[in-house]
Design a protein around this nucleic acid. Sequence first.
DNA 1: CCTGTCAACTCCTATATATGAGTTGATATG
DNA 2: CATATCAACTCATATATAGGAGTTGACAGG
Lengths: 237, 237
Amino acid sequence: MVDKPLYKVVQQFIHQRINAGELVPGDLIPSESQLSESLNVSIGTVRKAIDLLEQEKLLYRHQGKGTYVSRVDFDNSLFRFFSYGTASGEAARIHKRTPIRERILGTADICRHLKTSIGTPLIYIERVGYDDHEQPVLVEKCWWRADIVAGLEDEDLHIPDLLYAIIEEKFGVHVVRAEETLTVDIADVPTAKRLSIQEGDPLVVLYRTTHATNDRIIEYRVTRGRPDRFTYKTEIR
Amino acid sequence: MVDKPLYKVVQQFIHQRINAGELVPGDLIPSESQLSESLNVSIGTVRKAIDLLEQEKLLYRHQGKGTYVSRVDFDNSLFRFFSYGTASGEAARIHKRTPIRERILGTADICRHLKTSIGTPLIYIERVGYDDHEQPVLVEKCWWRADIVAGLEDEDLHIPDLLYAIIEEKFGVHVVRAEETLTVDIADVPTAKRLSIQEGDPLVVLYRTTHATNDRIIEYRVTRGRPDRFTYKTEIR
DNA sequence: CCTGTCAACTCCTATATATGAGTTGATATG
DNA sequence: CATATCAACTCATATATAGGAGTTGACAGG
């Protein structure tokens, strides 16, 4: 092992404690002076380590209160760039229905994304999102690992618009991060029907893998949406 | 004016010198100890200011050499996510031809993006990008302010694949940053013809405004490309 | 009971200092 | 001439210290 700077060692130490679930999203981490003393490094070094973790958005600081482990912020999802708003630009809320939820065994493709062996028991959930005018705007297919969220397929269980709320509450599973990939694709027949569009119409497609503590993958999700007012903005330097 | 932290004052000071063109991309800025002395602040404060500017990607440091003003890195363009590669995944180079270049007067729409008054003299350039197999994959429309790049429309002037290289060299205009917006759209007839696709086929569209020193807008550009293998990836925390 | 004060804790700003590591060019030495 | 060394400069790491600003909860005084 090469000689790492001290602040990186501290950074890793904290990072690991979060990954391992010793610190979960929302938690207050030990104060800078406490860390400084317990780890036997100067307070400046601790601050530098936390600076980096803050840049990674793994932590956030609050002057006077302390430093907290970030909660996953799905407002940063690429999905927010589908602006299914009113013509006047207001962001419209999308409400979702859940026509399908069932236990299945994972296909090769799905299990590859979940990094489990083929045939793993899964819970499949399909949801359709509607805008204010009850027009369908997106179709969401989610595959959850049945061993982690057993009972999610229960018909009596009400599923809120933000699925992750229930996962946290009912199953005590902490969503730590997610990876998203955005693509453009063409509607196939079933998707076209769901969205009241034509086969062959363009779609914006979002793939997501959701990770919990210990970097366990708990969900693979594919969302297909109408590209009507999709935009994404950045700055280049 | 509220009392700003010292390091923010230093940060602003350097930022302004770059904006004003006193420091241009590629330049070496004064060393930390020089800045510390000339501005009469501690070296730690200078470092913190530069830290922030480095995060903004406005500067980059090189241990032992110094700190430089960043060059615009179009590899970060959203455009790089159109991977017009070979099937094996190699990123294929796209070469461009320039079928149209002419002086025009700006329409309302274009001038709005360039933030000039309507009817401003512009140079319009249209380019088509081809992959290895000479298949057209994208169409690029650029509007440049004629007062800044006078002579760009000259037929004798060879335009390289990276248009900005010539702007820097011939006209001494430094590209400082660019804003990009990505959308999905439907091909109209002329675009479909250019790209050998059908009218109504999906397109990925990239709008770009390019800024030079003093935040002058020098170019507005619209690129339409085939969405074949477009993907964009992020991580959410 | 309410309210104001204040101590004790958080992170934030700013300075000073010492040492290390990477780069460059001048200079001495074969 | 070639090359090895080394001084002088860059930024990077690490420590110590002091005072300021935001937050909280305990506690005294009405």
